[in-house]
Design a protein around this nucleic acid. Structure first.
Length: 703
DNA sequence: CTCGCCCCG
């Protein structure tokens, strides 16, 4: 048995490597000129203000390597001094240090929002933007939407005149640059959670760097949880004045979290997770358990495993309640996660990565970390997206551990040895390196950024991805042979949909089916319309879904479902009785009305095809012509481009039935165990040629 | 013959 300073803790095959007396979450203090743990801080001599603890109590502040004690108001002044003096301030601080809520308030009080200017704070997720805005507006004692507001897609709770602090999604601010390229209404832009490296964070940083050169009065605060801050500093310093950028570090306030590692690697982390949860329940005091696994399949298995063990639980032991958590849950199921455990019971929440940053559950004292995550990766050569299970990064592991210390001291059990942890990559690869760039590149072109090879990326997307995107844009006539935006390209760049879908919206004028195409465009943008639970309820749901099934395929089926939803008063009750997600349908309604406004702006008629399904299908082909496939005798399809073997996704109405013509177009393909295509519609093969020929002819002309 | 990591506009 391994000794541990927690005397109640007895699991023989664990090796306890880190037992912190203070806190896992507090930042390692580093001095300029020395390298911090696992990070390249060699050029830290350029760093002037290295440590400014944020805390209601005082703490340490280090200026040029000298530590001194300062009361809190001086820390605030120091921070503001940095923003005043430097164009770009990189703020390092873990969750809980208050940077998201406090920093914008400091800036407001210091007068950065005078003269009608606005302080923006961007978030990668909508939920964060809305909830933080609510909290800050409460702290300031103002009504949400006045002095403090938020802007996310479909929700603008802000006022042009009154709002001084604006929380928004990074995608929203990036989109705003299309309208106002200098973002002139803002005095300070704080890019929060930059370490997550969402694609819009990266694009935004790229644009902000350019804006700074033209509008030096703009201040940028980049906030990041990990010590990869030097990467951002290098980015902003590149070839400019050394005063352009500095790093400030804030100390987080978290309860201590002990971290325990498995002595040896496990071949089956799902089973191991169940075992560890079981042991925690028997050996530890009160507190809920949060388990990180990779996907729904893992989660269901783990819950099943625990449920099977429950009958053998000693009568006197705490009762264990396994609860799955992933994005596909209904609202009711999600609410169960947040209900406090009943007396004498303990919640074991078995979750995907959603609980790492998006969903916060208080009362968790024990975290079990499988060390794996599922991420989406994109292969530009085949233009195929797939889901890969990969080891997490050090940053992720730290964030997961921190979930145990939100309300009390906790313990994190890592289901892998310390030696494995030491070899983990520091950060996950940025999204921009593993995603399709067609839409982002169209938007950059619209911003006048034409030379993508010269553009200063924080991390450049693979050249192949850029070439694929340009090829796709050219094929859809969004750019000309010189790479310049066409008239339609300019308009499509403004539309919040994928290029193919936008193409469909525009050609609906020729096919006289704007009404229906609008609905289909909105429905394909929303996932999980039909709720298919496991077992008997699943079979019933399947029967309900058949009521909407259209002969032509999935696009028409989605159209039927939307029309029925509208016909029956858009009610939640109707959705429930037809196994349809009310949440998803409401979102489709919002998206449809937003897209309708764009169509009206571009003078596209919104007329009905009056039941002429052929016309509608041909309009679909105008957007999807590159996604054609032909039936093969073994029941799969072959892609028109490249002859790939494609299996129909089981949720398709064409899963059990062959396309009558033998030809289909599809909305998207994804690689799982097989390469699967989702949302299919049967077509006549010559419809494909209309568009394919036009594209090929254009290419021949060039040669 | 069977399937959904997480997000953004």
């Amino acid at each position: 048995m391994i000794a541990c300073n927690n005397k109640h803790y007895r699991v023989p095959n664990w090796a306890i490597h880190i037992l912190r007396t203070t806190t896992v979450m507090s930042l390692t203090f580093w001095k300029p000129g020395t390298a911090g743990p696992g990070s390249n801080l060699d050029r830290a001599s350029q760093v002037e203000e290295s440590i400014v603890p944020y805390a209601p109590q005082d703490g340490y502040l280090s200026v040029r390597g000298q530590q001194e004690r300062l009361p809190i108001f001086k820390h605030r002044e120091k921070l503001l001094y940095c923003v005043e003096k430097h164009g770009v301030v990189i703020v390092v601080g873990q969750t809980g240090c208050g940077k998201t809520t406090q920093l914008p308030q400091y800036l407001l009080q210091a007068g950065w929002a005078d003269d009608g200017h606005v302080i923006a704070c961007t978030q990668p997720r909508r939920i964060a933007a809305t909830s933080v805005a609510g909290r800050v507006s409460e702290e300031l004692g103002t009504k949400l939407g006045e002095e403090v507001g938020y802007t996310i897609r479909f929700e603008d709770v802000s006022s042009k005149e009154a709002t001084r602090i604006l929380y928004m999604t990074d995608g929203m601010l990036f989109r705003e640059t299309l309208v106002d390229p200098l973002l002139s209404r803002y005095s300070v832009i704080m890019v929060d959670e930059a370490h997550e490296r969402s694609i819009y964070t990266d694009l935004l940083l790229g644009v902000l760097r350019k804006i700074r050169k033209q509008r030096p009065s703009l201040r940028i605060v980049v906030s990041s949880a990990t010590l990869d801050a030097t990467k951002f500093m290098d980015y902003f310093l590149h070839g400019s004045d050394p005063n352009e950028c500095t790093i400030v570090s804030l100390e987080g306030r978290m309860y201590p979290v002990e971290v325990a590692y498995l002595a040896e690697s496990t071949p089956d982390y799902t089973k191991k997770a169940a075992e560890v949860v079981w042991n925690i329940n028997l050996q530890q005091g009160p507190g809920d358990i949060l388990v990180f696994l990779t996907g729904r399949e893992d989660i269901d298995n783990c819950c099943q495993e625990l449920s099977d063990m429950l009958p053998s639980l000693p009568a006197r032991a705490t009762k264990l309640v396994p609860l799955p958590l992933h994005a596909g849950l209904t609202t009711d199921e999600q609410l169960r996660i947040f209900q406090p455990a009943a007396p004498g019971t303990r919640k074991a929440i078995i979750s995907t990565n959603i609980a790492e940053a998006s969903v916060t559950i208080d009362g968790v004292k024990f975290v079990v970390d499988s060390g794996f995550v599922k991420i989406r990766v994109y292969n530009p050569t085949t233009s195929l997206a797939s889901l890969a299970t990969v080891p997490i990064s050090v940053a992720s592991a730290t964030q997961r551990a921190g979930r145990a210390g939100r309300t009390a001291p906790g313990i994190c059990y890592r289901l892998y040895p310390k030696a494995v942890f030491d070899k983990l990559p520091l950060t996950t690869s940025p999204e921009i390196t593993r995603t399709d760039m067609t839409t982002p590149i169209l938007q950059l072109k619209s911003l006048g950024i034409d030379d993508l090879m010269k553009f200063n990326w924080v991390s450049a997307p693979p050249a192949e991805t850029v070439l694929r995107a340009l090829e796709g844009l050219h094929a859809a006539s969004m750019i000309d042979e010189y790479g310049k935006l066409t008239r339609i390209g300019e308009q499509v760049a403004e539309c919040p949909v994928e290029v193919g879908i936008a193409r469909m919206l525009f050609s609906s004028k020729d096919y006289k089916c704007g009404e229906e195409i609008l609905t289909i465009a909105a429905m394909t943008a929303v996932q999980d319309i039909f709720i298919i639970p496991d077992g008997a309820p699943g079979a019933l749901a399947e029967l309900e879904r058949r009521k909407f099934t259209a002969e032509e395929g999935d696009h028409f089926t989605l159209l039927n479902a939307y029309n029925a939803f509208t016909r029956y008063g858009k009610s939640a009750g109707w959705c429930k009785s037809h196994a349809i997600s009310f949440r998803a349908m409401s979102r489709a309604v919002s998206i449809r009305s937003q897209l309708k406004k764009y169509m009206q702006r571009f003078d596209l008629p919104i007329e009905s095809c009056e039941g002429d399904s052929k016309r509608l299908a041909r309009c679909l082909v105008s957007g999807y012509w590159r996604n054609g496939a032909r039936w093969a005798p073994d029941g799969t399809y072959r892609s028109v481009r490249g002859g790939m073997v494609l299996s129909v996704h089981p949720t398709s109405v064409l899963f059990t039935r062959k396309s009558r013509t033998g030809w289909v177009i599809f909305h998207e393909m994804e690689e799982t165990k097989k390469t699967q295509i989702r949302i299919l519609t049967e077509i006549e093969p010559e419809w494909l040629l209309d568009h394919g020929h036009a594209y090929d002819d254009k290419r021949k002309e060039q040669k």
